[in-house]
Write a protein that binds this DNA or RNA. Structure first.
Lengths: 159, 159
DNA sequence: AGTGCTTAGTTCGAATTCGAACAACCGGAA
DNA sequence: TTCCGGTTGTTCGAATTCGAACTAAGCACT
């Protein structure tokens, strides 16, 4: 195995480390601002966003689907939903067809909080991330990251 | 404020959510594989990498610099260095010039473990990330993320 | 109905992170 | 020298995450 195969080129190393560091910094920054301004962690914000999506007309989302979309363990979803239920931002609804499943949906308070937090947050996402690249760069990156995602899922299923 | 300014376009929303999800998935996947194969968390691996960099001829890195490079709180750095010291992979060295500072450096065992783990890990980084994009896409993304990083640091200093 | 396999969600303990508070130390000004 | 503001690293408690074990519920096949 050549050196080139064992290690990374200068360009590759920079790309990889920049990707990791930037994603960490972004997440950290947005998390802190959401907490300071709206008392929501980034995770919690994303849960509210997911529940507000018009994807399902009922507004109900199963715990498992929620965890999968959030890229976390199911137990972390349970924990966070517990927090949000305690604060009255979401509600658990028993699924009538399947006794194992639990639905989660936004309450009025939850929807109101999301609509208050979103403009601030999205302005930040634009400023810090979206506005740093041209439309072409943006779609290029998106396509590449979709391929990355696919490979990760393949790899997971292989193992 | 128009709707376009308050929310994101379809393309933007997809780009943003793809970025966040992919970075989480990547980190999670690499962390799990490093733990399974080499008993190292991704954070710990990155600490070893940082200490192995030829950036300082002495091989010594101050805690504060380490934390800054790792994008974590200083207390998290203290914790992880404690773990690695316990395992004999790194060592603390008192700084002679400045009584407040502590240097950290790799031990022989640490260097050996890093050299064992790196090829596996880097192959994965290539497969899952680097190989999904062309050289042009890669450099474009790197440049954009550098701009993002700069803006985050500016924003941090403003607040 | 009964048996066994799979799925959904929760609970639990361990690991990790964060920020605030703290102690030790440095360096310059009075 | 002495004092004071700034820096360095650590400690502490709270919050969060993970994976494994568990419970309850469906499903298929007899």
């Amino acid at each position: 195995m050549s050196v080139e195969e064992r290690w990374l080129s200068e360009t590759q190393a920079r790309a990889w480390s920049q990707f990791i560091r930037t994603s960490q910094r972004l997440e950290q920054r947005l998390d802190r601002e959401l907490k300071a301004r709206h008392d929501l962690s980034h995770t919690q914000y994303e849960i509210l966003v997911r529940l507000a999506e018009p994807r399902t007309e009922s507004g109900n989302v199963r715990m498992t689907d929620l965890a999968a979309d959030l890229v976390t363990a199911k137990s972390a979803a349970t924990y966070q939903i517990g927090q949000l239920v305690d604060r009255g931002l979401v509600a658990r609804v028993k699924c009538p067809e399947d006794g194992r499943s639990t639905f989660v949906c936004l309450t009025e308070a939850g929807r109101a909080l999301l609509e208050r937090a979103a403009p601030d947050h999205l302005a930040r996402v634009r400023e810090l991330f979206l506005d740093t690249m041209s439309p072409a760069e943006l779609t290029g990156m998106t396509a590449a990251l979709e391929r990355t995602c696919d490979r990760i899922i393949e790899a997971r299923e292989r193992s």
